[in-house]
Amino acid sequence: MAAEAEVIDGPDILKEWVGKGRVFSKTFNPELYHEVQQFVFREARLQDIHDYDAWEELWSDDAIYWVPANGTDTDPERDMSLIYDNRSRISLRIRQLKTGRRHSQTPPSQLARVVSNFELIESDNNDIKVMCNAQIFETNLRGDTMWASRNEYSLRRINGELKMAYKKVVLINNNKPIYTLSFLV
């Protein structure tokens, strides 16, 4: 996708939190950029309003939904993650929410999230890879909570529609004790 690209590498001391160097695209394809943004904005809205079925529809069949703990590029096959769902566990998560007896989401969190700083990154296959930042305001029975994350997506065009094959949400404070996180992040 990128004729020209550049590696953005942080200082070593931040690697644990910023992650490994990624190759960001310098070329700008306005149509693709717009399409990707619209997809992610829609995903954000479906999460905010707890439209579980519509959100689940966004995933591809081989999807991975990953929220690491204690760093950015941890090994989910070795280290504990907050969420490390394959497609069937995504489905289980949704089915639990839909019972209406998921107490930590009954009543559901009231949410508004802002997603920004979109950048396309180099992909080693046909998936479209994008990174962005998110801030989420949550209010629930406990009170108000602010969440912030760096998100990474692999999007795939399937029958003309974009689907999420991979979503990684790196909470900025994922090495600290955090409150219950039972809405869709």
Partner: peptide, 25 residues
């Protein structure tokens, strides 16, 4: 053991999110 633990416990766990909701209530 890891996969079941990750599903069950922690802030996003299928079990512990709700236990913790009870503690706080």
């Amino acid at each position: 053991l890891r996969q079941q633990t990750m599903g069950s416990v922690g802030p996003a766990g299928f079990l512990l999110a709700d236990d913790t909701e009870m503690y706080e209530r």
